[in-house]
Nucleic acid binder design. Structure first.
Lengths: 215, 215, 215, 215
DNA sequence: CATGAATGAGTTTTCATTCAT
DNA sequence: CATGAATGAAAACTCATTCAT
């Protein structure tokens, strides 16, 4: 995986219009939103952290909410969806003969992406329960796009006889739960533990493929 | 499971000192906290919803935060822990010879419990990222208590030769992820879908036990 | 005219729910709005003048605009309209045989009323150009109600052969202009002059009835 | 009346130093001030409407208030006063033998002038109550200059035996009220009505000269 | 000349909390 | 016990004005 997947840097690089102060505002906002949540973060606090006058924030983002969306939308829109889709293309192009190979590639990608964008990811999952509009965008882009593609893919491997006879929905849910379970445990519940990424990942794949029952 | 597992009712029943107004305050607070989050819910809003004067809230709970803890602590303290522990005793008392039987009992219990306490559950998982003190309590009671017991239990079934050779941590994580994945999908992500509880549960157990790989 | 026509006192008397602070807020707001205009008066200024915390204002009036409307609406709604209408009834009840008698009564009433409610009157005419909603209310209550009644009355005296052959609209406009011309000169343009009310009024009536041309 | 009486155009013509941007700023400011009032118009709004950067406004006018004065002063100073005085000279030069002729000429002039400068006129009468400095200028130029001249003129016609025996002040007030009553009704209160200018004017003159009493 | 980012003081409004009744 | 008026600190947001480019 050569590409730099840090969304914020990508944003700063591709759009040269960002003032130095503007960048500082974004960084400060991201840190505070991730730590204390959108609702408990005051604009004066962001301003102080960014070393900027409070008015400056509102020069760039009409409202505090606009600032949140500006931070969180790219995470959903421009990235997550195509990100997953990329891997799916490879599958259909026979790049992954075995489902397990696909799984390994996808997990690797997701872990890398999320570890590069930890704070953005935290904000996203923390705010989705409270921001109906955000939830809508999320549903449209994830629930619709990703689930559709993922379903096709599951069907593909099912037809190849590689997968057990569970409903596609249950399979997707199980895979996603297992992956996000790991991500959340690692990044949110117990970030202080020194995780052995490689092994945990391998065990997760093991679990997804073979379950817990000893043969 | 004969017992009524609705925490709020239980609370109201066992403690006769609750005024009518006090109950209304709790119900209103729970609804609002679940829907908009603790930080975005104002006490005046709760008062209005409860049909109570603003001051009345503070007669019963010194601060807004105390109100939150009052709501959320029983969920953690008095209930979750013993709840799980109860089942574990049964295991150790040879009630569940097979891990799968234990799993089935535990999932059934949890689903019932959470469907009875949907709002409390939402509040809990939504606020944990923002309330460090809550997180501490949670960690102490879940991470410590439950994980310890659960680990013993996993070891027990491992020794009986029923479980695959993954690290205990990975097993716990996988099981918990799979269950919570279902609960969250059902109750938070897509509550509008008409879920076939029984079948989804069975498929989840199936997945946990046997994985996705076709033999 | 026995009746007390001070709108504010009337309001305070009839509605016993007014707190002392609430009255002070209204008085302070009226003074400031009259002097500097709605837009240039800050709520903090009103609070200071009323000897009240700024929050107290918003306890009683959700927004600054609501405070303005609360002050200015009674002036339009409950008072001006019926005020004029009262006199009109007397006309139709043959109380005023001559148009001039009616005119004298109406002018006396208006002058009294406005001198009792100088500040409210100032606010009203100063803000009408800027508050479209206010303008709407004003139009509905004055333009519709009053003009209709006034038209009937003019027709009545026209039929009696007492009035010159100008369009009803022009007559109304002329009478109203003459009266308001005096009121505004007296109360807004040159309040420092010591006006001889009685004589000025008589001259105004003289002008309205006989014009400027010497016979 | 051959002369172009549009103050703004006159200003732009005589002073060639006006940049295109400067003109746009003035036009935008005039529109906004007239519509929403000086206090409720923000400089950023003017800048946006003028298609100009915020700073550009302050390049030309040190403060927002200076911009207002720049707009409104010519209306008072350079124009109103000499405008009326011009007619008065003609009177004294025996151009108008009858007061009615003078009246007709003056009203025609004023209506034309105001219809050419509607927005400026609106701003002037709307802001006078709020801008003490403006009120001073106005008083000095109108109250002093115009009233003095007008008084002489009234005395002149009085001596000629053409005018009724009212105080000069009452006469001035009545004439001015009648004219402004029409102007305000036409331009501010009910601009949507399709006024028959010629006839309304004639009726106004009729009223001023002969009053309402049928002979 | 023109720009527009930046400012900081000020504005309206919200809110948890207190307290006299 | 309950009320709701009152508070004041802080929140979000606005705005005239400055200044480096």
């Amino acid at each position: 995986m050569r590409e730099q997947e840090n969304l914020l840097e990508e944003l700063f690089n591709q759009d040269k219009d960002f003032t130095d102060k503007q960048k500082k505002i974004l960084i400060a906002a991201i840190e505070s939103f991730a730590e204390k949540g959108y609702a408990s973060t005051s604009t004066s606090e962001i301003a102080k952290k960014a070393g900027v006058a409070e008015g400056t924030i509102f020069r760039h983002y009409k409202t505090k909410k606009e600032l949140l969306y500006f931070i969180v939308e790219p995470m959903i829109k421009k990235v997550i969806a195509p990100f997953v889709i990329k891997d799916m293309r490879k599958v259909l192009d026979q790049e992954f003969e075995e489902f397990e190979d696909f799984l390994r590639a996808m997990i690797t990608n997701m872990l890398l992406f999320i570890s590069e964008n930890k704070l953005l990811f935290r904000i996203l999952i923390q705010e989705i329960p409270f921001q109906p509009e955000l939830r809508e965008i999320f549903k449209k882009h994830i629930a619709t796009e990703v689930i559709t593609r993922f379903s096709e893919l599951i069907s593909y491997y099912k037809e190849k006889g590689q997968l057990v006879d569970l409903s596609t929905r249950a399979i997707i849910r199980s895979v996603v739960s297992s992956i996000f379970g790991y991500i959340i445990a690692r990044n949110i519940l117990a970030p202080e533990i020194d995780w052995n990424n490689k092994e945990e990942m391998e065990q997760t794949i093991q679990f997804i493929m073979y379950g817990l029952k000893r043969k």
